[in-house]
Amino acid sequence: MPSEVTFEHHVSDAEFKSKVRKTTILLSVITVIELCIGLIIYNIHKGESPSHLLVLMFKGAVCILSLAKAYYIVSIFMHLGDEIRNMIMTIVVPLLLFIWFITAFIVDGNSYKNLRNTYDPHFKESTMPREHHSTTEKAHDEPKEGKQ
């Protein structure tokens, strides 16, 4: 009985090897860039007056780089890119729900925080980051960091 599906997708060995090598290097390079950004964020936090906008921008950049990594893993390593378009769509289209999912829940968390800060002075007082003591505390931060 003839088989219904193609079990073997014949790719030339050389082509396959260069594709895998390229993807591996790409994933490693992206990871290294992510780590560098992580350390940059760490150093911004340690500084005298951390710029929150700058931190947010770096965090956004890391998110985009992670999505790029996910794309390469799925399309090259998992070969989703080689499947029939309609099949790809049955996987990718449901994932679009995440756009709503992430937005809605993060906005919800944020709104809960704002409500508590407005109506619960104790919560605000006890959890709001203090900026004023940073000059005295942070000066001692450097040599003792390892003791945390």
Binding site: F105, G109, K113, T127
Partner: peptide, 10 residues
């Protein structure tokens, strides 16, 4: 996790 994190000041 993201929701809880966004609901915290710190």
């Amino acid at each position: 996790y993201g929701t809880i994190r966004f609901s915290q000041n710190f």
